[in-house]
Nucleic acid binder design. Sequence first.
DNA 1: CGGGTTGCTTGACGATCTCAAGCATCAATG
DNA 2: CATTGATGCTTGAGATCGTCAAGCAACCCG
Lengths: 146, 146
Amino acid sequence: MTATAPRTPTKAQLLELVAALGTAQWQDFAAAAARHGLTSVQAKLLSQLKGPVPMRGLATLLVCDASNVTGIVDRLEARGLVRREPDPADRRVKNVVATDEGHETIRRVRAEMQATHSALDTLDEEERTTLYGLLERLRPGLEHRG
Amino acid sequence: MTATAPRTPTKAQLLELVAALGTAQWQDFAAAAARHGLTSVQAKLLSQLKGPVPMRGLATLLVCDASNVTGIVDRLEARGLVRREPDPADRRVKNVVATDEGHETIRRVRAEMQATHSALDTLDEEERTTLYGLLERLRPGLEHRG
DNA sequence: CGGGTTGCTTGACGATCTCAAGCATCAATG
DNA sequence: CATTGATGCTTGAGATCGTCAAGCAACCCG
């Protein structure tokens, strides 16, 4: 009775575990962001900026109203972490781009998610591959959904 | 070249995937809660109430300030989903308990997380067991952390 | 050019969150 | 018992987040 035989978990148990890990990881992210004076939402927006993204696109990515994005970008811009650039093809559109400092900041936030990193470090290569494969299969079903 | 050979994902890829699923699942939860007129935070608090929990305990569980819990419980109590009860052993303490309606509401919210449910349905028993085992191993490292 | 749509911002309002301050109660001490 | 310090909860101020309604500019189409 030392090694617990791997019973099949109920869907409820699995759901609870996924939820618990999701929030734990979010807390880790929020804490890392806070160390750099960012709220979790600001950091999340920043993490979407691999290239220029129009305001509307950010609203879609963050699953929120466009008017909400205005304020978040305002605060990030006031700190010099992002910039609003006019879109050459459509004068209505403003593309948001991360400044060098913005990129560097979000890079550090990701690097400082210690809890998540050390958790992932407990898995060996094969386990990581297995986990990745399973999570990838879960993704399509969880993709935004209208 | 049809079946993609399972490469070992980088830690960054794995981290990104975990983050993406975490937020997707959170969106699913929030949407289900909204259908019952609850914010995600209210629903999350409600989901912690298997038994009586003091205000202070809720603040710890939600990783937030105690003063924040006051307002959230106020709103839930105004709707009759929770109740504040005096603690027999310590008159400072107020224990929060879910009413029958509260329990029923959160049960429905969980049941209505369609995206999450259908995602989990794509896994067979063995895969679920494997996933559960791996996620459980990730849990200790992600458990609250100071 | 006129009319409908789209992208962004503004303003109003509620919910969340933190911090500082305050009150009541508990626990330990003399 | 009275004092002192810690603990549990609430209140109030102030910032952020989030929605909705309204408005303006620019696009698209006929």
